[in-house]
């Protein structure tokens, strides 16, 4: 998928959402008008469902028809959720091409509910991110976030998209946009689940170190370490290495040495520096200035 295709997809989603809003309004209005119109018809005898007045009958039938259409469209919309779930299974097994096809199909189908489409779009962004197509992923995440809560965007998807968007900006080297996108989220936000905190922490540290906010990065160190310990090895190494940089810059030399040593035990930092500019830049910046950390047994293998 290219950036233009992603842009077109978001535009098409906007049109679809407009169509579904109109459809929902029409159906709801028909049900309400039909039902109330039949109720307030004073001319009929008690106990009868059908009226002598053809207009009342038409209203009653229209309300029933609209309700049946709503139920049928709901069942049809469930198919889309099923497609998205199938795509998730494909992503888990690494068959990204199949997952992408499945999600594109799901996005083309009509649905009465926005959530299913936004979820499919989020999964598509996830695939693009996994394929290192950061511009595409950023375009999709930005598009999803633009729908907002009124557009049917749930809190969970909104947060995940925001985190992914920040990550994409950072990989694209745009720290300013990343910081702007991250502003509503903080790793220490009590509303975040532990899984979300673990997603946000390394990204937040990359933003803070990338923008030279070392004091902020080194604050609440023990809390940050307790979370960094729960990350998988490469992310734990990244978080510890960034915390080490922050401590070094704020004069906490002993903490910096300890964190650096830990980072090296978690993962090969040279390998990480290939993926993360922020580590590479700091490593180049500090080479020669700091003493080399002690070798670990992991290095001696």
């Amino acid at each position: 998928m290219t950036r233009q295709e992603a842009h077109r997809l978001i535009r098409s989603l906007r049109r679809q959402f407009l169509l579904l809003t109109v459809t929902r309004c029409l159906l709801l209005t028909t049900v309400a008008v039909g039902f109330l119109g039949t109720l307030w018809n004073p001319s009929d005898a008690p106990g009868s469902i059908l009226s002598a007045n053809p207009l009342t009958n038409a209203l009653w039938l229209a309300a029933t028809f609209a309700a049946v259409v709503w139920v049928a469209l709901t069942f049809y919309s469930v198919r889309q959720v099923r497609s998205t779930n199938q795509a998730t299974a494909y992503i888990a097994s690494g068959r990204l091409d199949l997952a992408e096809g499945q999600l594109m199909d799901a996005l083309r189908q009509f649905s009465l509910y926005r959530n299913g489409k936004l979820l499919a779009c989020h999964k598509l962004a996830l695939i693009a991110h996994g394929q290192k197509q950061y511009q595409v992923a950023a375009e999709l995440c930005d598009g999803i976030l633009s729908f907002g809560a009124w557009g049917g965007l749930s809190k969970g998807i909104s947060r995940l998209c925001r985190i992914m968007l920040v990550d994409c900006h950072l990989f694209l080297g745009d720290v300013t946009s990343a910081i702007r996108a991250l502003r509503p989220v903080s790793s220490q936000d009590p509303d975040l689940s532990l899984a979300e905190q673990l997603l946000v922490l390394p990204i937040e540290l990359r933003c803070q170190i990338g923008s030279d906010h070392y004091e902020r990065a080194a604050s609440s160190l023990s809390w940050k370490m307790s979370r960094a310990e729960l990350l998988d090895s490469p992310k734990a190494a990244l978080a510890h290495a960034l915390l080490a940089v922050a401590c070094q810059k704020t004069g906490q030399t002993e903490n910096a040495t300890f964190l650096q040593r830990r980072a090296e035990l978690y993962h090969d930092l040279d390998e990480l520096a290939e993926d993360y500019d922020v580590l590479r830049e700091r490593a180049q910046g500090s080479s020669g200035k700091n003493s080399a950390p002690q070798a670990t047994s992991a290095d001696n293998k």
Partner: peptide, 20 residues
């Protein structure tokens, strides 16, 4: 309710509203 309610001579709002 749809087929028999009319024979029970109930008020119209009840006949229409109860199933909903």
């Amino acid at each position: 309710w749809a087929f028999r309610a009319q024979s029970w001579h109930l008020v119209r709002p009840l006949v229409l509203g109860l199933p909903w």
